[in-house]
Structure formats: C-alpha cells, structure tokens
Amino acid sequence: DIIVVALYDYEAIHHEDLSFQKGDQMVVLEESGEWWKARSLATRKEGYIPSNYVARVDS
C-alpha cells in the first residue's frame, strides 16, 4: 500500500472529497492526475485528496 502523510489541513469542497488535518496518514487507493482517492487511517473514510497536499511515507 502507498501511505501518505498530510502536509497541510484540507477542508473538503465537494461531497466526494476527504477532509484531513496536517499529520494525518492515508492509504492511496487510486492515483489519477492531481486528485487521488484515499482512505484515512484514523477515520477509515474514503474520498478524493489533492495530491500536492500530501507526501509519501517511506516504509
């Protein structure tokens, strides 16, 4: 799995977006363009995230 960590807070604009806080970790489910589908490890919610707001966690 690709794990990313939030670099900034993000408040969902559309209902399919995923809100998150700086430091939150998410599993990337699908990478396509600038918006990635991800699942929050904390809340288990899924939605689209702006890929420029996150960084990959080296395992």
Rank of each mutant, 00 (worst) to 15 (best):
D1G: 14
D1Q: 14
D1I: 14
D1V: 14
I2L: 11
I2T: 11
I2M: 12
I2Q: 10
I2D: 08
I2H: 12
I2G: 06
I3N: 04
I3L: 11
I3M: 08
I3E: 03
I3C: 06
I3Q: 04
I3P: 03
I3W: 08
V4Q: 01
V4Y: 12
V4F: 09
V4P: 00
V5E: 07
V5G: 01
V5P: 00
V5D: 01
V5F: 08
V5T: 07
V5S: 04
V5C: 07
A6K: 01
A6V: 03
A6N: 00
A6I: 01
L7W: 03
L7C: 09
L7P: 00
L7E: 03
L7S: 02
L7N: 03
Y8H: 08
Y8S: 07
Y8R: 14
Y8D: 06
Y8I: 07
Y8A: 09
Y8P: 00
D9A: 08
D9E: 05
D9P: 07
Y10D: 00
Y10I: 01
Y10W: 10
Y10T: 00
E11L: 11
E11C: 12
E11T: 14
A12H: 02
A12Y: 02
A12K: 06
A12P: 08
A12S: 09
A12E: 03
A12C: 04
A12T: 04
I13V: 13
I13C: 12
I13S: 10
H14I: 05
H14L: 07
H14Q: 07
H14D: 09
H14N: 11
H14G: 14
H14C: 13
H15G: 12
H15E: 15
H15N: 13
H15T: 14
H15I: 13
H15S: 14
E16S: 13
E16G: 15
E16I: 08
E16N: 14
E16Y: 14
E16K: 10
D17I: 08
D17S: 10
D17V: 09
D17C: 14
D17F: 15
L18K: 00
S19Q: 05
S19I: 03
S19C: 07
S19P: 07
F20Q: 00
F20N: 00
F20Y: 00
Q21A: 11
Q21P: 02
Q21V: 11
Q21F: 11
Q21C: 14
Q21I: 10
Q21S: 13
K22A: 10
K22Q: 08
G23V: 01
G23Y: 05
G23I: 00
G23W: 05
D24K: 00
Q25G: 04
Q25E: 10
Q25P: 05
Q25A: 09
Q25S: 08
M26W: 02
M26Y: 02
M26I: 06
M26F: 15
M26A: 00
M26K: 00
V27G: 02
V27F: 08
V27Q: 11
V27K: 08
V27W: 10
V27N: 04
V28I: 14
V28A: 03
V28F: 03
V28H: 00
V28G: 00
V28W: 02
V28M: 04
V28Q: 01
L29N: 03
L29A: 04
L29W: 06
L29P: 00
L29E: 04
L29D: 03
L29C: 06
E30S: 10
E30G: 08
E30M: 09
E30Q: 10
E31P: 09
E31W: 15
E31R: 13
E31T: 14
S32Y: 14
S32D: 11
S32L: 13
S32W: 13
G33T: 05
G33K: 04
G33Y: 05
G33L: 05
G33A: 06
G33W: 03
E34V: 12
E34Y: 15
E34L: 14
W35Q: 08
W35A: 06
W35C: 09
W35K: 13
W36T: 07
W36L: 14
W36Y: 14
W36E: 01
W36I: 13
W36S: 06
K37E: 03
K37W: 15
K37D: 02
K37P: 06
A38R: 01
A38P: 01
A38Y: 02
A38N: 01
A38D: 01
R39K: 10
R39A: 08
R39G: 03
R39E: 06
R39N: 03
S40L: 15
S40V: 09
S40P: 04
S40C: 10
L41F: 07
L41I: 11
L41C: 13
L41Q: 07
L41W: 05
L41P: 06
A42F: 08
A42V: 15
A42H: 10
A42I: 12
A42N: 11
A42D: 09
T43D: 08
T43E: 05
T43L: 04
T43A: 04
T43V: 03
R44P: 05
R44T: 10
R44F: 15
K45F: 07
K45R: 11
K45C: 10
K45Y: 06
E46H: 07
E46L: 08
E46R: 04
E46D: 05
E46W: 07
E46P: 02
E46C: 10
G47W: 03
G47F: 02
G47E: 02
G47Y: 02
Y48L: 10
Y48S: 05
I49L: 04
I49V: 08
I49S: 00
P50S: 05
P50F: 06
P50M: 06
S51D: 03
S51Y: 10
S51P: 10
S51A: 13
S51V: 07
N52F: 10
N52E: 10
N52T: 12
N52P: 06
N52L: 09
Y53S: 09
Y53Q: 05
Y53G: 06
V54N: 00
V54C: 06
V54F: 12
V54P: 01
A55K: 13
A55T: 12
A55R: 12
A55L: 10
R56S: 07
R56F: 12
R56I: 11
R56M: 09
R56P: 09
R56N: 07
R56L: 11
V57H: 07
V57R: 07
V57F: 09
V57A: 08
V57W: 09
V57L: 14
D58W: 09
D58E: 12
D58L: 11
S59L: 12
S59P: 13
S59G: 13
S59R: 06
